[in-house]
């Protein structure tokens, strides 16, 4: 992989191989020799590739003893009369999760891939990724959950729906052949089921029974029928990594290669976090200089947000997530 290279989703960006298992032959003990003499009986060199049946060391005499290799591998150490073999291999690959051009290689982390399109970020993901046509079932499919709502062709599609609070809904969606799921929220108890789901799962607003916010829903509806890439990365508070849905677009407004600094300002579109406005979205219309005491008794910096239903709400600035 090099910078400037065009990649498709699924292309390997980086790969490393670890041995499947290790084997230590104690030649010294096995042959009853001193360490230096034992090492002289070893017929291989460090780093040498070995095949099943290859002889590692053998003793002479009336009853010669032979150490043979059970599995393909390589010699990684000959030390103190012992031979250590690394056998088999497990490949770990880092793959491109959407098409684009590699613009930066980051040691130990991966690569920065640049593509053109729209992005919808969530807050929780199960670490898997997939691509497919976007279909939106909305809240109706889950509130209350009705199997009939799912009796449409979902095979190979990225399915967007409301909150997912029942395990049988996840199972039904998996059985329908969906390639990936975007839910507005997830029941906390379904977290481990979600992690083990064979397809990517992204929650837009987190946990509980939270409806999709107006901005996200509008974007999803606009993208229905398009091919989307769902990268349900596990959110990491210590890096910028968040789960996301990417929709490649040929023509978009050029905002430059790098994001502008995300700052809360008047006019910012925001998602509201925490009670009592979880799942709402709106626009900041005022950022008062003074802190304000909330129902909890905490005195906090405040923002006045105009919600999609035109209602004005006052909310701690710490409970706002800026939508880019």
């Amino acid at each position: 992989m090099r910078t400037g290279q065009q990649v498709e989703m699924g292309d390997i960006i980086a790969e490393y191989v670890l041995p499947e298992r290790f084997m230590v032959y104690n030649v010294q003990r096995g042959f009853g020799l001193s360490a230096s003499k034992a090492e002289s009986q070893v017929e291989r060199l460090v780093g040498e590739h070995v095949e099943p049946g290859d002889v590692i060391a053998q003793s002479s005499g009336l009853f010669p003893r032979i150490f043979r290799v059970p599995q393909e591998g390589r010699v990684i150490s000959i030390h103190s009369g012992k031979v250590v073999l690394a056998l088999g291999e497990i490949k770990h690959s880092c793959r491109a999760s959407f098409p684009g051009i590699v613009v930066e290689l980051i040691p130990e982390r991966g690569a920065v891939i640049c593509g053109q399109g729209a992005i919808l970020q969530g807050v929780w993901g199960n670490g898997k990724n997939a691509q497919g046509e976007l279909i939106h079932l909305g809240e109706a499919a889950t509130h209350p959950y009705d199997q009939k709502e799912l009796d449409i062709e979902l095979n190979g599609k990225i399915v967007s729906l409301g909150s997912c609070l029942r395990e049988d809904l996840l199972t039904a969606l998996l059985e329908s052949g969906a390639a990936g799921l975007i839910v507005s929220s997830l029941a906390p108890l379904l977290q481990s089921t979600g992690m083990n789901l064979g397809i990517p799962l992204m929650s837009l607003a987190g946990f509980g029974d939270i409806q999709t916010d107006a901005y996200s829903e509008a974007m999803i509806k606009e993208m229905v029928g398009r091919k989307v890439f769902l990268n349900a990365h596990m959110a990491d508070p210590f890096s910028a990594q968040k789960p996301e849905m990417i929709v490649p677009l040929d023509k978009i407004e050029d905002k430059g290669l790098f994001d502008e600094e995300v700052r809360l300002r008047i006019g910012s579109k925001v998602r509201l976090i925490g009670n009592p406005y979880t799942g709402n979205a709106g626009e900041v219309i005022e950022l008062p200089a003074e802190t304000e005491r909330f129902a909890s008794g905490l005195e906090l910096p405040v923002a006045v947000v105009q919600r999609a239903d035109d209602q004005l709400v006052r909310i701690p600035t710490s409970n706002l997530e800026v939508i880019i």
């Binding site: 906390p188 009592p276 909310i315």
Partner: peptide
Amino acid sequence: AVYINNKYLHPASMPATLE
């Protein structure tokens, strides 16, 4: 469970309600 799991996702958020 809902509160704690969401707090992990938004560690800087502050409780605005009594509950």
